[in-house]
Structures are given as structure tokens and as C-alpha cells.
Simulated assay, not measured.
Amino acid sequence: MDLAKRLVRYADLVPCTNAFVDARTPGSDRKENFTIVGPGVSENPNQHVHVPEPHGFNIGAARQPGGCLNSQHSHETAEVFVIHSGHWRFLFGVNAGDDGHLDAGPGDVVSVPIHMFRGFKKLDDEVGFLWVVLGQDDPGKVLWAPKVFELARQYGLVLLKGGRLVDTTLGETVPEGAQLEDVPSDELIRRLATPSLDKLAQGHVPFSAMRGNARSPLAGPGVEECPVITPTATRDGFEPGPIVGWWPHGFNLRCLRMSPGASVPPHERDEAEVIFVHSGTLEVATPQGTLVMGAGDTFTTPKGLARAFRALSSDGVVAYVVRGGDEAGEVRFPERLAAA
């Protein structure tokens, strides 16, 4: 088993600068989109996919400079943002910010409900990075706000039914008989009404509010596993929350915090697990080899393979871990079972 093929380093991420129909709209034309695990929702068939293996969820990312805007859109499945760097504003409503906004910074997690319009803007001057989890193997196509279509046509981009993007500035033409994607009707827009800001705040967990679960099987000296998204009680000792959601997620999200030198012994899981290092240097040791991950790196662990963690950096490690399914499964510790 080649574990290196399951590791996507931040430095090796392959961006797509015209993944979506708003790619040339002024204010949105400097963003980079990434598909890290799974097919994602790109409208460009040339989008690079780093790890295509189905997981039951998708991992993507966005990188944007200061002031850059991701236009208003709606999703069919969960869209969860882990703020890796920078300060961001999530804008709600069919027109950006009409229905309010929510600000988030490094380490925060924001889950936006399905079937509502949202966009996001990078607030500070430096380039920022969002690590994004999308629900299901097929997260469906993006539904764009009417103004996005109007601006796209002005800059040579046409979206076809089924989600294919045609770039007329590159000499591409709309295939004969192809149908253009419908602009959302007023009736549809009414059905995608924005919940109250109080309800939307239930999908935001600031990094400073994350608390370790003492019942976590991974907890130990210098190790905390903090719940972030837990749709239902799990078999590894987590109660629902802090994000449950009245919309489906289909996965759990945890924050793993480790002090310098702290470790988690070899353990096994049967569900898909993807690890993202937010800060520090994390060693992942398996019977198939050992990997060292740095900030911004993503690794998808093979199901059933024993894995052990150790914090190598002097300032410890913060990592976010996605586990497939609403009810995360039990954890097995092979060495403990052998000694019993």
C-alpha cells in the first residue's frame, strides 16, 4: 500500500482558477479552488482531483487573497468550512449580505445549512485558506444566484445543464442542442429563504470554544479530542453537538489537540477518516509506513489500518479529523486487545 498517494501536501495542491461560473467576475477572479478527496462540485471537467476514492463525503478547499469574493450560491448537501488561515465573512441571502453575515477566523468551523444562498469573502489583506467538507459522494451541483449568471455572460462563461462550464474566451462553443442552466426563479428563491441569524449561529464553533471530551478513547496525557460536528450520539463516547444541524451532514468532525511530544497509541477504525493538520507537525505511524504531516497537509487513512499519532513540533499539534457516518464507530486498540 502506497500511503504517499493518500497524502496531499499543501505545497502540492493543484488549483483550478476557473472552476465555477463566477471565475471572471471582478472581485471573484483571483480565487483558487481545490478538489482534494472525491469528485467535488467543480463545473470545470479539467479540475484536478487528488484522491478520487469515494469516502461518503468530499474534501475541497478555497484559497483567496484579501477582498476576494466567492459568489452567492446554494448547495444540496452539507458545506462545512474549517478556517485554516485569514479572517473571513460569510454572506447570507440571494444578494451578498442582504440577510446578514457571520465572521470567522483561524481554527473556527462554520457549517452552512443546505438550500440557502451563501457566499464568502476574505477580509484581511493576506492570502487565506479554507478547508471544506461537502456531504455525500455526489454533493450535487451548485445553484447560483441570478446576478452570478448575468455577470458570467459579460465575461465569457456559460453554464450548461448538468453543471458543465463553457469558456467562450478560449474558443469553446455551446454544443448544438445543449441547454443552458436555468436562472433560479423568484419562486425558487423564496423557497431558499435564509434562516434567522440566531439559527445560523448554531453552525459556528469558534476555536476558543472547543472543549475536549474526557470520554474520548483517544484522550490521554496531553491529548484532547474536541467534538465539533456530532449529529447523533456515537459509539466512541460523544454526545450530539455542538453542531448537530437540522440539515444532514453524514459525517463527524473533531478537533484533535496534542501537546508537544504527546501521542495516541495504535488504533483502528472501520469508517473513512481524513486528517487535516491546522498547525504543528504530526507523525502518523502505521504498519505500512510512517508519514510526517505539516500545517495544511491532508491524509486519508485506509479503513481498518492501525494508525498512531505523535506531536513532533515544540508548539504541539492541532488537527481536524473527519469521520464518515453520522454515528462514528468504535475504536479498537490492537495492543490492548493482545494484552487482555
Rank of each mutant, 00 (worst) to 15 (best):
L197A: 05
G177R: 07
S208C: 10
K199M: 10
I189E: 02
E187P: 03
G220V: 11
S279K: 13
P231S: 09
V244Y: 07
P217D: 06
E271Y: 11
K199V: 11
A262S: 11
P206R: 08
P217E: 05
A214Q: 11
A219C: 01
E273S: 13
A285P: 09
L192F: 12
C226K: 05
D198T: 13
D198N: 10
S279T: 15
G237L: 04
D186S: 15
E239A: 14
A201I: 04
S216F: 08
L188M: 12
V274F: 00
P266T: 01
L180S: 06
I229Q: 02
A209S: 15
M258G: 00
I229T: 04
P195I: 05
T232E: 15
G212L: 02
T230Y: 00
E181W: 04
E225D: 09
I243V: 15
P231H: 06
E187M: 08
A219N: 03
E271M: 13
V277I: 12
F251D: 00
I189C: 02
N213I: 07
V284E: 11
S279M: 09
T286K: 05
S208F: 09
A209T: 15
D236P: 04
S279W: 07
P221I: 14
E176G: 06
W246V: 11
R269Q: 15
N252D: 09
H267Y: 07
F207G: 10
G250A: 04
D186P: 13
A219F: 07
H267R: 09
P206T: 09
L282T: 04
Q179A: 12
R269C: 05
A193M: 02
A285M: 11
D186Y: 13
V228L: 02
V183N: 09
R235E: 13
A209C: 13
G212Q: 05
T232F: 07
G212E: 00
L256H: 01
Q179G: 10
H204M: 05
C255M: 11
G250V: 03
S196F: 02
L197F: 07
V284N: 01
D236C: 13
Q179R: 10
E271W: 12
L188K: 08
S208E: 15
P217M: 05
F251N: 01
N213H: 09
P217R: 04
I243Y: 07
E187W: 07
T232M: 15
D198P: 06
P231I: 08
R254P: 00
W246S: 15
T234E: 12
M210F: 10
